[in-house]
């Protein structure tokens, strides 16, 4: 298998977002980067309603020992990457603990009731306040805005993967990223994805 060790074994990572944001792609990408290094990776995905505005969540369980349950136990996440800020809060509610690290995109995707004005969307201050209370460390990153500047909002995922590499809790490298991308993406899209990864990485350091 692998000689590498993990900061926790299993390491429990959650990628969350809203249907259509590319959650599944991000989890596959990270999963493959780690599987390439010989880790056991189990990914559980809830994406039945992915394209229809529902919350989407992938559980990644990374271990040197075996496959694990595709649903992680409550309160046991080590890191959460969120493509949408309120989704991070939703995930913390079930899987958070005082040590968990959170990287969240700042770009809101409004729920139907928010669009209709029946409920209001939390303010930045409110979100930060909860993050402060519920995490060991958190980073809020304007990944979508940066990605839009790079030409495609979907690159926001890759920025966040770069940022996850940046916090250093998982052995994620640019080289590993390039390898997976080369397998799964047309060559023409490699450079822009590498640039997005670098940008995300830089946003943490």
């Amino acid at each position: 298998m692998t000689n590498q060790t993990l900061s926790a074994d299993p390491f429990n990572l959650i990628i969350t977002g809203v249907g259509g944001q590319g959650n599944v792609l991000a989890s596959k990408l990270i999963g493959n980067m780690l599987a390439d290094q010989g880790f056991y990776v189990t990914i559980g995905e809830t994406f039945g309603a992915s394209q229809r505005g529902g919350s989407v969540m992938s559980h990644l369980r990374i271990s040197t020992k075996s496959s694990l349950s595709p649903q992680m136990p409550r309160g046991k996440a080590h890191a959460i990457v969120s493509l949408e800020p309120t989704e991070a809060i939703r995930v913390l509610q079930e899987y958070g603990n005082p040590e968990v690290k959170v990287i969240s995109n700042t770009r809101p995707v409004y729920a139907l009731e928010v669009i209709s004005g029946e409920i209001s969307y939390p303010s930045d201050e409110e979100l930060k306040g909860w993050m402060q209370k519920l995490t060991g460390a958190y980073w809020l990153i304007d990944a979508t805005d940066q990605a839009v500047k790079m030409g495609n909002p979907i690159l926001g995922n890759v920025l966040l993967v770069g940022a996850l590499a940046g916090i250093g809790d998982l052995p994620l490298t640019k080289e590993g990223f390039r390898k997976v991308m080369a397998r799964t993406m047309p060559a023409s899209k490699l450079d822009i994805n590498l640039a997005a990864f670098d940008k995300g990485l830089a946003m943490i350091n």
Partner: peptide, 10 residues
Amino acid sequence: AAPARDLAFC
């Protein structure tokens, strides 16, 4: 801070 998300047509 986590408004419920009902499913919606795209």
